[in-house]
Deep mutational scan, measured.
Amino acid sequence: KFGRVHERAEGPAKILAIGTATPFHWVDQSSYPDYYFRVTNSDHLVDLKEKFRRICNRTMISKRHMFLTEEILQKNPNLCSHNEPSFDVRQDILVSEIPKLGKEAVLMAIDEWAQPKSKITHLVFCTRSGVDMPGADYQLIKLLGLSPSVQRVMMYQQGCFAGGTMLRLAKDLAENNKGARVLVVCAESSAIGFRGPSEDHPDNLIAQALFGDGAAALIIGSDPKMGLERPIFEIVTTAQTFVPNGDCHLALHLREMGLTFHCTKDVPPTIAKNVESCLIKAFEPLGISDWNSIFWILHPGGNAIVDQVESTLGLEPNKLQATRNILREYGNLSSACVLFILDEIRKKSGREGLKTSGDGLDLGVLLSFGPGLTIETVVLR
């Protein structure tokens, strides 16, 4: 008597548009150690500064975009301390800036989509910054002038794996609601975790050397309108798992001094060791076991992770080039990073006149991972 209210779509979910945005301000990685130790009044920690310089040199990052300028840091000195309470200051900045950054990426996506924004039916927003109620999803709806009846899902504090999570959720929403057009937004800022150095917490140096700011937005829907919408990728399958006891290797915690970062040297080999089982589960039903026969979007948690995944799986050097390019130009953008790589690989395919948006290949994989050593596996066509 009370059956399904919403009719299912006929076809699989497809990515119809991609937009990205970054803050205008950026830092050069080669000179960042001098800048970082100067603005945090830590130049007296000579040995720690040299250690940080070595870490920065190993990241293979060229530059990173950041909202925090020297002027902002001078006005808010607690942000430059390692342990002073600064959460309220971070909140005041990020509750406002995260939706604005997301808006810039959304406008780029809508411009490519070339359809009225009134056709957006759902919003899925993800960030690890600016936790608030009502959330960044609500603020973004107002900034864009979208209908208050847009169906919203707000996900805070997920971390680097969440780019894949957003695709998984959007696929379910698009395929189970005929005519749905799902706006996916990942907006991230390193301002939540920026803090001064400490000899007692070397993990913090890794975070300060890796993370950048950026937002990515996608429009996802099934059954694209012929002649009006141009699909870029099809989302074939999605899956999530985590490595048992992985939280002892990688975890982040909200504290009075901001978001703290805990990471062990076992993260790269542990991820590399567990990736292939995810690939087998995803691609065995499709008859694929040659990992060089697919295109790759791999989250660059750090250069060591990229190198070890490449080595463990025997990947050809060009397979992870898009990942390395984004890491070099932006650093680790947390949940937004794989979506930047997705954009990079389709643009490169277009520039080179390849037959598909995925490096000329039919199928590919998007792998994202993060806290708890959670792994998201997304098969794309």
Rank of each mutant, 00 (worst) to 15 (best):
G360W: 01
I305Q: 09
E344S: 10
I345T: 12
R351G: 08
L68Q: 15
V365Y: 14
E97C: 06
P244Q: 04
T22M: 07
I288D: 00
A105L: 02
P23G: 05
P244R: 10
K348Q: 00
L144M: 04
T238M: 06
Q74R: 13
I294S: 08
T323E: 01
D43V: 03
T264G: 13
T20L: 03
E234L: 02
P23V: 03
T356F: 08
R8T: 04
A21H: 00
P285L: 08
V379K: 15
F52R: 09
D247T: 14
E284A: 08
T121C: 09
A304P: 09
S335W: 02
L333C: 14
P134V: 10
D307S: 09
A304H: 11
Q29P: 07
L313R: 02
E310G: 06
I18Y: 09
L380F: 05
L380H: 14
N318R: 02
E344W: 10
R351I: 09
K319V: 04
S118P: 11
Y138K: 12
H82M: 12
D111K: 13
L73F: 06
D34V: 06
I120W: 03
L320G: 04
S129K: 11
D137M: 13
K281V: 05
S293T: 08
L16C: 01
L101M: 08
V243W: 09
W296Q: 08
D290P: 01
F295C: 03
K281I: 00
I305K: 00
E316P: 03
F52P: 11
F369S: 15
G11E: 07
F242N: 12
L279Y: 00
E71C: 04
L279I: 10
L333Y: 01
S96Y: 05
M66T: 14
V5P: 14
K347S: 01
F369N: 15
S368M: 01
L45M: 14
S311T: 13
L68S: 08
V338K: 13
A239R: 06
A21P: 08
R53G: 05
T323C: 15
G372D: 04
I235Y: 07
E84S: 12
R230S: 11
Q308V: 11
P99Q: 15
S357R: 05
D343Y: 02
R324I: 08
A13V: 01
R8E: 06
N325M: 14
G19C: 05
T264P: 14
D359T: 04
Q321N: 01
H6M: 12
S357D: 06
E84M: 01
T59Q: 09
Q308A: 13
A9F: 02
D47Q: 12
D43G: 07
R54F: 00
F125I: 06
I280Q: 11
D359A: 01
L48H: 12
T264Q: 06
R381G: 03
K51Q: 12
E256H: 11
G301N: 00
F37V: 13
E71H: 01
H25P: 14
T356W: 06
K142S: 04
G301P: 15
V338W: 15
E376F: 00
G370M: 14
Y32L: 12
G246L: 08
I55F: 15
R381A: 00
T356E: 01
S96W: 09
I341M: 12
G360P: 06
K75N: 04
A304C: 06
F87I: 12
F283D: 08
T312N: 07
V309S: 03
I120M: 06
A109V: 04
D343P: 00
V309R: 07
E284Q: 07
D137C: 12
S357T: 12
L327M: 15
A272W: 13
R328V: 00
A336V: 03
N274W: 12
K355Q: 04
R351N: 00
H82D: 14
D362H: 01
G301R: 07
K75T: 06
A105I: 01
I72V: 08
M257K: 15
N292C: 03
P77T: 04
G130H: 09
G302L: 05
D266I: 06
R64A: 00
Q74E: 07
I345D: 00
N41L: 01
F261G: 15
K348D: 00
E7K: 08
E10T: 11
N325E: 14
L123W: 07
P23T: 09
S293P: 08
G360A: 05
L380I: 04
V243E: 07
F37K: 08
R90G: 06
T59E: 04
L146W: 02
N318F: 13
V106D: 06
N292S: 09
L259D: 13
K75V: 10
I326F: 13
I297S: 06
H249Q: 05
F125W: 14
D307T: 00
L380V: 03
P317K: 14
H299V: 08
R4P: 15
L143P: 06
K347R: 09
H122P: 06
I375M: 13
C80A: 06
I235W: 04
F52C: 06
N41Y: 08
G246S: 14
C56F: 08
R90V: 13
K265R: 11
M257W: 04
E352V: 04
H6E: 11
N76G: 09
A109E: 01
M66G: 13
N245I: 08
I15W: 03
N57L: 00
K1S: 06
S334G: 14
I235S: 01
I294M: 06
N292G: 09
W113L: 05
W26E: 12
L123K: 01
M108S: 09
G302E: 15
E112Q: 12
M60N: 00
T377G: 06
L259S: 15
E329G: 05
S368P: 08
A336E: 10
P23K: 12
R58G: 12
T377L: 00
D137V: 10
A21S: 06
V243S: 10
V39W: 09
V5S: 08
L228G: 05
Q308C: 07
G301L: 13
P116N: 03
L380R: 14
V275S: 09
A136D: 11
G258D: 08
L228W: 03
P23C: 07
L279Q: 02
N332L: 01
E50W: 13
R351P: 00
A17V: 06
G246D: 09
G353R: 13
S293Y: 10
L373M: 15
H299L: 09
I98E: 07
D266T: 10
V379P: 15
D111Q: 11
I98C: 08
L48M: 01
V124A: 12
A21D: 07
Y330F: 06
L16G: 02
S42K: 11
D290C: 03
H25D: 15
Y330K: 15
C337A: 14
N303R: 13
R328E: 08
N57E: 13
T69K: 10
V267H: 09
I288C: 11
L320D: 02
M66W: 02
G302I: 07
Q321M: 13
S289H: 11
V338Q: 15
L16A: 03
